[in-house]
Design a protein around this nucleic acid. Structure first.
Lengths: 208, 208
DNA sequence: CCGCATCCTCATGGATACTG
DNA sequence: CAGTATCCATGAGGATGCGG
C-alpha cells in the first residue's frame, strides 16, 4: 500500500493492515494457525496471487510468521505476538458491525469458524460470566461448542467434553443473542432457537 | 469497495470503512465536525475527487451525515451516532500502532489535532486518573491542552482555562509517554521534555 | 494434491485542471 | 469554496502454469 505520509497511529496501522484482505487474513490466523490451503478455503473470494502477496507483506511487517508445521517440510502461517494483538481492533470492528449482521447472510458465504471470533468479542464486553458451562452450537459441520469460564468465552469445534446444553439456531440468531440485540425469550417465541438440555444455563450465558 | 461476500462482522465492517482513506476521514470527524476544506487540510495527500466520493459512500452507509453549518447555507460533515462508535476500533488501532510510532515522524506530516484522538486512546486504558488537571501541550500552533478528569482525558486547543503545568516535547515523546513506552524520568534525563509549572501533576497523569 | 508465479483484463486510485 | 471531469498509473480478480 502506498504510504499516507502522516505521523498518525491510525494511518501507520492502516499502511500495514489496511490493504484489502489483510485484516481478513489476520482473522483467519486468530482463529488458528493455518496452511496456505486452509487460508484459501477460509477466505472465499481471494485470488491465490493476492494471498501470496499479502502473506509476504504481513511477514515483512512483522505481523505474520511462516514456520514449519508440526512435522515435516510443510509450512504453516501464524501470527507473531504483535500480530495477535490485532484481536482487539478486530473485536471492536465486529461489535461495530452488529447493525450490519442482524440483516442476516443475504447470500453471503458463511463458515462456522468465524463465530469463534465474533461470539466471544460480543459476549466478553457485555456479559458477566457467572457459570462455567459448555453449550453445543448446532450450526453445521463440524459441530461447534461455546465454553464459558471465569476468564471469558471460547468457541471452537466440539472436543468431546460433556455438553450442558445444545443450542440449535442459525448464525444470525446466535450473533443477535451474543450482541444482546435479541433476547433468548424473544428468539424462542419467534421459533428461531431450539434448546436441548439445561435451558437455564444458556439463559445465564446470554444474560443481558 | 467490492463486496467480500462473507457473512462475517469484520468483512461487513470493512466493506463500509475498509476503503482507502475512509477511516482517516472518520478520524477527522471524530476530532470535530468539519467542512470540506477542513477535511482537505486535515487529510494531507487525499485527492479532491476521492474525498467527494468517500463522503458520498459514508453518507449512504449511514456513517456520516451532511448538514448545514451553524448559520447559513454552508454545509458541514459530522458522524452519525453509529459512525461515532468507530472511536473504539480506531482507538484500538492507535494503541496497536505504538511500535510504529516510537520510530518518530521520519518525514511524515503531522497535525497537533491528531493527538486529540491518540493521547486519550493511549491513556484511558492504561492510567487511573486521580487528579483533575489541565496541562498545556507545546507542540505548535495553535497551543493545545490535555485535560484530565475523573471520566477520562481530553485533548484539544487551549480554551483559556488556567494551566496547572505546561509540557514542552515533540509529538513522538508525548505519544511515548502516553503509551507508557517512555517514563517521564527517562524523557527528562534524555532532554526530551521541559516542564513548566507543577511537575508532580504531569507525573501523576502519565503514571505507569 | 500443495504452494505459489505469471499473464491478462478491467476497476479503482491519484494528480491535476476545471467549473458553478 | 466545494466539489467535477479527465487522464494516467496502479492494483485487484480470474485463469492458468508449473515445480515439488
Amino acid at each position: 500500500m502506498r504510504s499516507y505520509g502522516q505521523y498518525c497511529g491510525l494511518a501507520r496501522s492502516l499502511e500495514i493492515v489496511g490493504d484489502r484482505w489483510n485484516l481478513l487474513i489476520v482473522r483467519q490466523l486468530l482463529i488458528a494457525p493455518a496452511r496456505y490451503r486452509d487460508l484459501i478455503d477460509g477466505l472465499p473470494g481471494i485470488a491465490t496471487n493476492l494471498l501470496a502477496d499479502r502473506l509476504r507483506d504481513l511477514e515483512a511487517a512483522g505481523v505474520v510468521e511462516r514456520r514449519p508445521a508440526d512435522k515435516g517440510s510443510v509450512i504453516e502461517y501464524a501470527l507473531t505476538p504483535w500480530g495477535a494483538q490485532l484481536r482487539q481492533p478486530i473485536g471492536s470492528l465486529i461489535r461495530w458491525s452488529t447493525p450490519l449482521m442482524v440483516r442476516g447472510p443475504e447470500g453471503d458465504s458463511f463458515r462456522p469458524e468465524w463465530l469463534a471470533l465474533a461470539v466471544p468479542a460480543l459476549l466478553d464486553t457485555r456479559v458477566k460470566v457467572r457459570t462455567s458451562a459448555t453449550v453445543g452450537l448446532d450450526i453445521g459441520d463440524p459441530p461447534y461448542q461455546l465454553c464459558a469460564t471465569r476468564s471469558g468465552f471460547e468457541v471452537g469445534p466440539q472436543d468431546g467434553r460433556d455438553l450442558d446444553a445444545t443450542l440449535r439456531a442459525d448464525p444470525a440468531t446466535i450473533l443477535g443473542l451474543a450482541a444482546g440485540a435479541l433476547t433468548l425469550t424473544d428468539a424462542h417465541t419467534l421459533g428461531l432457537v431450539k434448546i436441548d438440555g439445561d435451558e437455564s444455563i444458556v439463559r445465564t450465558i446470554f444474560a443481558a
